[in-house]
């Protein structure tokens, strides 16, 4: 059993790591990481725009985004992938690689989820912050940019890392539209071997476990640090002893 696992890793580690890269598209673990990093990179600004739109005074801006966020949260990610698979080529008018379709889906999906976090961060700041900024001569946008968002976003860092973890887990769904990621590479290995499906998928599960576990660990460390910094130097000792609330990542 263990020797089987080692043999599979020895024979196929390159395929699992970068897919068929020099002779074909980049895939494997590298592609999973690139896809997740790009999604979170685009989803972050999108989530700020969504959150500002939902807090806006104009119903024309507020309502469509509110509906979009609720639909995104109430519908399976798989359904959203099917929608993008259908709509994105229609809109662009050309053949779009599955990587781009998956990226679009994840940006909308995680953007909607993160926008709730951003909105909560903005709402939780005291009203006086905005009033004081306006009194000092900032415009609404200026106050947002220089006073409100920096405070709200700093508190958001841990939940951005945990969203990154759930994005990594979400990229596995690209398997349905043949995005060449780690899961896809593992099923290719399985198709070549045919006799050891359990070993192959166990390796797959272990790789994801190591990846997500270490990132969750980092997120918890960062969260504790931010909690300590917010508590200030005087009560630092108290913050040290209070257990940090565990970050529960969004599924799947």
């Amino acid at each position: 059993m263990i020797t089987d696992l080692i043999a599979i890793i020895r024979d196929y580690w390159l395929l699992l790591l970068i897919g068929q890269y020099p002779n074909g598209p980049l895939g494997g673990l590298a592609n999973t990481l690139i896809l997740s990093a790009l999604s979170i990179g685009f989803a972050f600004p999108v989530s700020i725009i969504f959150a500002l739109a939902r807090l806006s005074r104009w119903p024309l801006l507020r309502w469509p985004v509110t509906v979009l966020v609720y639909v995104t949260r109430g519908v399976p990610l798989l359904m959203l992938i099917l929608w993008c698979y259908f709509v994105v080529p229609l809109v662009t008018g050309t053949d779009v690689p599955s990587f781009v379709i998956m990226l679009t889906t994840l940006v909308i999906y995680q953007g909607a989820f993160l926008s709730e976090v951003v909105r909560a961060g903005i709402v939780s700041l005291s009203h006086g912050q905005m009033d004081a900024a306006r009194a000092l001569g900032h415009s609404y946008l200026g106050a947002m940019r220089f006073i409100i968002l920096p405070q709200a976003l700093y508190n958001m860092i841990p939940s951005i890392i945990s969203t990154f973890v759930s994005t990594i887990k979400d990229t596995t769904l690209g398997y349905v539209i043949n995005v060449p990621d780690l899961t896809f590479a593992a099923s290719q290995v399985n198709n070549q071997l045919l006799t050891q499906p359990f070993q192959v998928f166990l390796i797959l599960a272990l790789v994801y476990y190591v990846l997500c576990w270490s990132l969750t660990y980092v997120a918890n460390r960062v969260e504790r640090r931010i909690a300590r910094r917010r508590a200030g130097t005087v009560s630092a000792a108290i913050a040290e002893t209070t257990p940090a609330t565990k970050i529960i990542t969004e599924q799947p």
Binding site: Q199, F201, L204
Partner: peptide
């Protein structure tokens, strides 16, 4: 919590089932 749900399903159906 750290392994994607899809991978868990695949491990059950394609792996443990056999």
């Amino acid at each position: 919590r750290n392994v994607p749900t899809l991978v868990q399903l695949m491990l059950w159906y394609f792996g443990i089932f056999t």
